[in-house]
Design a protein around this nucleic acid. Structure first.
Lengths: 359, 359
DNA sequence: ATCTAATGGGTTACCGATAACCCTTCCGAT
DNA sequence: ATCGGAAGGGTTATCGGTAACCCATTAGAT
């Protein structure tokens, strides 16, 4: 592409006619055409300082004619502020996180920030790359779901560079920071209580990796709930697994090899619940006829999905919305010195993945 | 937060120990500590110029000790290049677009670019705001799904400012640009042919807004397919609607008021298909017993969803991947002068939303 | 008529990094 | 001994914008 050396090429007899590509218009171009200094243009743009109405109008007119768009990099460089926040999640195809993203985006927009979205894929390495980008871009803050306990170093890097952040959904041992998390313990309690009310006694936990705080908490809640229901807690019924669909094949195999075979499973999240269901189906195990499944969150499409998982549904939109609000409060210095921790409650949704145990 | 005036505060007896927040480290700080000039640091970072191994090592060591992270804004300002591309979609909660996003992200990563994601919500106003941000941020290019024909002005703005872009899924009349789109005509043909093979004769089109190119093309395909099957084309059976779930209530009402009531519906996309299904269910209309539904794309969770929509499934991941590749080819000057247009084929997936018409 | 202060706007330096150009030093060739 | 050039690295200007400071006018107060 060709870059025209000067903006003057755009001047035609009928005024400033923009045609074709004309390189980058700067405040200096505007200044020249409006017969003022660059500073005056800057003042008009930012509505600062004292400018006569006449000058302001003239500058505005020239800006419009030349299609001026401010350069965010130049401005960010001098102001040390970008008005961009970043949302880093572990799986953008998980409906929980897409809903979080929407909440985050709406909140960011309404507070005058732009959202830069990233996807770490439950992968600490990818996460690190994103954190590097974030630091390099000098975004004003980050809302992120830590991939796991290994994320500690990344979070420390953020602190080191003075980039505020809020942990979403998970927290990391040894890190004290603003966070928005769910109440896993109470969620598990509701789920187990419900299973027990249906008559289940042999309940397994397929829990994700205990490298992730929610998995640990759900495990803890599981123990507590079993005890509260006077059911024996059996280590054999606790499986540690990955969070991907394909991790569930082995888990299903394992569960079915136990004796007695559990009559219900608490899956670590919606993806693992789905994986388990698929694996059971492949083995012609009926859900909920032979095994009931309960889990957290929601896959969306409630009235289309069969079976609909009985689930402790967390307010995903709120996670994103409140997370961004907390982040921006921190960025703009509206927070207390001490980190705040917001614990959101979940709601038991009874679906068709649960039923009475086989006798 | 407190900003330490100087990096020297970080110097301890055992070397450079970074503790707490220490403001922004620049190449000048590195230079000072390594006893070289800033330019030398820049050369080490970028692997340009001639640097002795000894100096290079020393600089690298200091960079690591001070946790240096380059400032992308400063670099971008002088290089006129950000290595960021933006993906702007109309609905981030639509599984088609989340999959596109994943493909786009993977492609961008592998080509050394970062992805800035945005969501226009099928809303030209929001889209404009995003375009402004994009221009202001000086990202290197944009992959976007135009919200509608009104997007023309936004695309022209991109051209005007020399920002390359690729249109995704939809094109805009009067705009000639790189694009990656699906073959709607053939998709509709497959769907209608299948319906006809089941015995349907009264097929309706609930088509989205004809302000969107895919809707127009699907309409066109609909006419052609009806004719090819020697079925009468009846304007009454063509509904123009929005793309949101709640737009389908009125559409369902309208369809059911026709006489004869159509025995099958071609929905404009997966969201409208879902909305129709819900509306029919609320009226106790059985799908596919009384009405069959066919559509485009895929909601995911194939083995969980009931009914699974019979659909012309487009390769969403490829849309994102190839779109980004095309964009980056353009950015890096590897494209022909003329815009290229990539048309991706779809595949007929037969689900349980279709059956023989009621007699 | 003089002083004061508000009004309107220009100058200069700087944000952090890189391009372009320049200057040593040192080595081998003649 | 002299010269050419490669190696290694420093200086300065610049990207586009804003803060801080400065300088004319003009209007109102006394």
């Amino acid at each position: 592409m060709m870059k025209f050396g000067t903006i003057n090429l755009l001047l035609t007899s009928n005024g400033y006619q923009a045609e074709g590509w004309y390189g980058m218009i700067t405040i200096y171009d505007i200044a020249k055409h409006a017969n003022v200094s660059a500073m005056t243009v800057s003042r008009v743009i930012n509505n600062t300082g004292r400018i006569s109405d006449k000058t302001r109008m003239k500058v505005r007119q020239v800006m419009a004619e030349l299609n001026y768009v401010p350069n965010a990099m130049a401005r960010g460089l001098v102001l040390q502020k970008t008005n961009i926040v970043s949302l880093l999640v572990t799986d953008i195809t998980n409906p929980f996180y897409t809903t979080v993203a929407r909440g985050a985006e709406d909140a960011a927009r309404s507070l005058g920030y732009k959202l830069l979205l990233g996807n770490s894929d439950e992968n600490a390495e990818k996460e690190k790359e994103y954190i590097d980008t974030i630091l390099s871009t000098r975004v004003d803050g980050v809302l992120l779901t830590p991939a796991g306990d290994d994320s500690k170093g990344h979070l420390e890097a953020l602190t080191l560079h003075g980039t505020p952040y809020v942990a979403l959904d998970r927290d990391v041992p040894g890190i004290l920071c603003d966070s928005v998390v769910g109440d896993s313990i109470s969620g598990v309690r509701k789920l187990i209580d419900y299973l027990v009310s249906l008559g289940h006694q042999h309940v397994a936990l397929v829990g994700g990796t205990f490298d992730v705080s929610t998995a640990r908490q759900r495990h803890q809640g599981f123990k507590e709930a079993m005890e509260a229901n006077r059911l024996p807690y059996n280590e054999e019924l606790v499986l540690q697994t990955g969070y991907r669909l394909q991790d569930m094949e082995a888990a299903a195999e394992r569960l079915l090899s136990l004796s007695p075979v559990p009559t219900a499973v608490l899956a670590g999240n919606n993806v693992t619940a789905l994986g388990l269901l698929q694996s059971f189906r492949r083995r012609s195990i009926d859900v909920p006829g032979q095994i009931s499944i309960v889990t957290f969150d929601d896959l969306g499409y409630r009235d289309l999905i069969d079976p609909l998982f009985t689930s402790a549904v967390q307010p995903a939109y709120k996670f994103g919305e409140l997370g961004i609000q907390m982040l921006i409060d921190r960025i703009e210095g509206r927070s207390n010195e001490a980190p705040s921790r917001l614990v959101l409650q979940n709601e038991l949704m009874i679906g068709s993945s649960t039923g009475a145990p086989p006798q």
